[in-house]
Design a binder for these strands. Structure first.
Lengths: 152, 152
DNA sequence: ATTCATATGACATCATGGTTGTCATGTCAG
DNA sequence: CTGACATGACAACCATGATGTCATATGAAT
């Protein structure tokens, strides 16, 4: 496959992502509204729930966002009692952020709800196709991320 | 495949999209900055360049955005001489928006630049894999979009 | 051990753009 | 003819990504 053809296919792929993110954010926000969460705070809660306690800058690195914005979300979640600070054995100044039991329970409920609804999506595709799509998306993500990193 | 497994795969897919959109927007914006365009105005210009003249509400429908925001982009593009209004034979009030020669030329240049850079992305995947990923993404997009539409 | 670059939290500011609302006017179906 | 809806214009709000600053803590280099 020529580079032009590949470029055209990746171009088409990327074009799907914007509306997909917008629409999924709308759906997710709608069910999150009752809990006072946004997609941003939800993403932070998810990161902590899945990968354990970490510092604010670490969350930012993982989500490709500046630590300042993450700090806002963490402060918001902390006010709601969904996350809490813990002393960092490896760093006195930089505290670890961890989910509280309430935060972990809330996210578990949110994810269960979402998984149930997502089960009906893209029903005409096989598990193999979904796996292929995931692999491709991760590769594109990796390469685009590299480009974005080069900008800094 | 069970619904739970499918849900988990689509969940993983969607999780890739947010950082992908963010990072690609950063890369695209960086090269667009010189032309005074943003990803928003670029999307409108792209729509007009690829699908021909259409009304502001039509662009909004196609991009899953409110016509008010599209109007802002159109006004901006119009000020820069990249798009222009034409009388709509099917509607006296609702004008058609079309690219000017300058706008069409600018977008052609932008797309050529982007295609060239995208040719190096996800190089370890076959054309078939890319095609599969595109089909899956379109299906997910369609179903998520349906959910979002149901919210209104 | 001292020094210096960097990391971190806290705080502030700004721009983009998605969302919502209003109003006058044009359009179209009943 | 009338009422429901579409459209352009304009306005306002707000979440959030981007950026900058500053004091302090940390770690590495000398």
């Amino acid at each position: 496959m020529s580079d032009e053809d590949r470029g055209a296919m990746v171009y088409a792929l990327l074009r799907e992502t914007r509306p997909l993110v917008l629409n999924s954010a709308r759906v997710v926000e709608a069910s999150l509204r009752g809990d006072g969460l946004s997609v941003g705070t939800r993403a932070v809660l998810e990161m902590l729930a899945e990968h354990g306690p970490m510092t604010v800058p670490d969350i930012g690195d993982r989500l490709d966002l500046a630590r300042q914005g993450i700090q806002r979300h963490v402060n918001d979640l902390s006010t709601r009692g969904l996350v809490e600070s813990r002393v960092n054995p490896a760093h006195r100044r930089s505290v670890l952020i961890a989910t509280t039991p309430a935060g972990a329970a809330l996210f578990a409920r949110i994810r269960a709800d979402e998984l149930a609804r997502l089960g009906a999506m893209a029903a005409e595709h096989s598990a193999g196709d979904l796996a292929t799509a995931l692999r491709v998306l991760r590769s594109v993500n990796r390469d685009v991320r590299q480009r974005a990193t080069d900008l800094r």
